[in-house]
Design a protein around this nucleic acid. Structure first.
Lengths: 127, 127, 127, 127
DNA sequence: GTGGTCTAGACCACC
DNA sequence: GTGGTCTAGACCACG
């Protein structure tokens, strides 16, 4: 679990992404304390420097804040977290569709491909 | 020079991707000769070595083949190119949906988001 | 400097082959760390780029994997290494026999020639 | 037929090898006239320069000789051709076994592998 | 420290 | 002319 990093992306980004997703999925709640840098480093089998960087980035994104001597905490601003959810959704969709269109797929083909993948390819109509 | 590359991805991958897309979109046809390494390097404002790497990768992917002293050519195997198109489509969709689901979005939400982005949010019903 | 390379084959392939053979012979063990790119370059009297290429190829062959900032390591998957051994054996035999047959030697003649070379030509009978 | 060259070896060597093998197999006989350079180039779909090089090499190996204004001819010295046959056989065997031993295979393993490949692996004994 | 990428420029064999 | 390899040296992000 704690050790599944690929080499194509910096580890710190992978951890960052995982934390964001846990927050968005509600597995980590508003106001919740994150593990200490050292603890998290152990859990992930990673250099503390790397975790430090993740927490700094979370702070920059206003998803967490660190209180000196106490640790890092997810923001208590729940609307911020809801915004985060929408933001991630839109970014991912945006990037996906831009990529697909640049590769030459039409909107119809994109939509059909996504639907097929999600629902199986039993003939849907009525778009 | 004439082309803009971003810094988040190696240049050679950006060129590779661009060529793949041009092939998939039919802008480059089966059997067509690619510019020589040196010429492409000039066009891209890039070192010949970098282009060399791109062409080598195209060959490894069986999208192009190089003939000694003659240059590099897109494969004449059109079915290979069709496969490439499907492959790119499926990979992109797969990655997108995996990402979305891992972030906690349901299939319905994904599909709705994609449709809305592609068609505007006029009447989606009955999925 | 310390190593002699012949001119008929690219240096990077010669280094690659040597490493593969060391792995197959068990001189380099599963999980073992390879010298850093720079160090290996020094050892071989070769440019770091050349070694880099070798390591990239080893990774593509799933013989080694590189961990960011840590170095390159022979895969810990021992069955992969056993497969490699068989693979090299079969490839070499296959190529040899294909060559021999294409040159017009019969299976009997091939086998006799190999046996003679390996054992001296004492009593070959009854094949 | 005439167009099956791989990229890992110079085309002229591939043609050279093919001719040697045809001679060794007896498909081309002692004293026989080879196609003209231009003719052979057409047959092979190759630049005349390339064929020129092949014929020069054949002459250097004393397998063929070119008579000005008449063309190239396989040598009439049949013992030379027999020697060629043995020479090719021994070279190929030598190279194969050297490679195998360097990869760490024992003589027994080599012999077993070759026999298995040639005869199928029905338990032979009596070496 | 590590690997990854890139440039500049060279040399080679091949066609 | 072409692609393929190599060197020398640089810069970067990562751990």
């Amino acid at each position: 679990m704690s050790q599944a990093f690929n080499n194509t992306q910096p580890i710190y980004l992978q951890i960052l992404q995982r934390l964001c997703r846990q927050v968005v999925r509600g597995e980590i709640k508003a106001g919740e304390k994150l593990p200490s840098v050292r603890e998290m480093a152990l859990q992930c089998g990673v250099n503390p420097n790397t975790v430090q960087r993740v927490y700094a980035e979370l702070e920059r994104l206003e998803i967490a804040e660190t209180r000196r001597g106490l640790g890092s905490f997810i923001t208590e601003d729940e609307t911020r977290l809801k915004r985060l959810r929408e933001q991630l959704k839109n970014e991912q969709i945006e990037r996906f569709i831009a990529d697909m269109e640049e590769t030459g797929f039409s909107p119809e083909e994109i939509l059909a491909g996504v639907r097929e993948r999600l629902l199986g390819n039993k003939g849907q109509r009525g778009d």
